[in-house]
């Protein structure tokens, strides 16, 4: 039967509320059989974003971290898995594109599985936060294009919450190989795919060239932010040329430009924001 990946972004309010989210403690806590069943459920429903072993994928955070952002207790987890996290890619139960919603028991099985996978280590210890901040706003120039806590540029995504929604490896990869996987931008409630930060070069009817990132696009119109953060709201049939690439507007930071230690410091800075 169809399984609609598009449903990822659907608010399935009725379904979410029909689940009893008030239980405080996992009735299956510590049960290895439940954890095993939970692993299968996890692969089916969650691995597409959080990776096959829950260590995080390109689209979702590492769930094996003992310290989490939204979810401290089992009840928090139940709530998040049932209802999703509004405004993020984390979908409500039954709307993740794998089709079927999980039963309450299946959710508890997943929680038993996730608890069995947790590793106690603080990712923040992997670099120098203060130096990372300096680099971010200084030599590394990240703040030219990225906002953090209300300060910085607008061309790229706001990075205040990035460490909570993506893994360390994924963040590092975004800096070393920005074009490999473009960041997600606007998500619309009924749409299957979020807009990605594609790079555009267009020439308008009067011969003006505009280069920037795509805020949104359909078959007939395009909404661009150019490199100087100006908005251009254009109709495609009035353009002289329209060129879209998946080459990121973010420069590739090789190790000559930003050494591994510096990068770890920047990531430590981004991670420290999330811990607050």
């Amino acid at each position: 039967m169809l399984k609609c990946w598009q449903a990822a972004l659907f608010a399935s309010i009725s379904l979410a509320f029909s689940l009893q989210a008030f239980a405080q403690k996992n009735p299956l806590a510590g049960d290895p059989k439940a954890a095993k069943a939970g692993e299968s459920e996890f692969r089916i429903n969650c691995a597409l974003c959080h990776g096959l072993g829950a260590k995080g994928g390109g689209r979702g955070p590492d769930l094996t971290r003992a310290v989490k952002k939204h979810t401290h207790t089992d009840a928090d987890m139940f709530q998040v898995i049932s209802n999703g996290i509004p405004g993020t890619a984390m979908p409500a139960n039954g709307t993740n594109g794998q089709g079927v919603g999980m039963t309450e028991r299946e959710i508890w099985q997943i929680i038993a599985y996730l608890r069995s996978q947790e590793v106690k280590a603080s990712p923040a210890s992997l670099g120098n936060t203060a130096r990372g901040k300096e680099l971010f706003y200084g030599d590394a120039n990240c703040s030219m294009c990225h906002m953090v806590q209300g300060k910085g540029g607008r061309l790229g995504p706001d990075l205040t919450g990035v460490a909570g929604s993506r893994t360390r490896e994924a963040i590092i990869d975004s800096v070393r190989n920005p074009s490999r996987r473009l960041a997600w931008g606007l998500t619309e409630a009924t749409k299957e795919f979020p807009q990605e930060y594609e790079t555009l070069t267009v020439v308008t009817a009067d011969g003006k060239q505009i280069k920037g990132v795509t805020l949104n696009e359909d078959s007939f119109t395009v909404q661009i932010m150019d490199m100087s953060e100006n908005l251009h709201l254009l109709e495609k049939d009035k353009l002289r040329s329209f060129q879209k690439t998946r080459e990121s507007a973010m420069p590739k930071y090789t190790t000559d430009v930003l050494g591994d230690k510096d990068l770890h410091d920047v990531v430590a800075f981004l991670t420290s924001l999330e811990a607050k």
Binding site: W5, S40, R43, I44, N45, A47, L48, C49, L52, Q98, G99, V100, M102, T103, E106
Partner: peptide, 21 residues
Amino acid sequence: FSTAPQPYEPGHAFYGSAYFP
């Protein structure tokens, strides 16, 4: 496409596999 063995239980999702883009 990856396999994820699952026993049959009435009324429970029964795919036996995971897939993602």
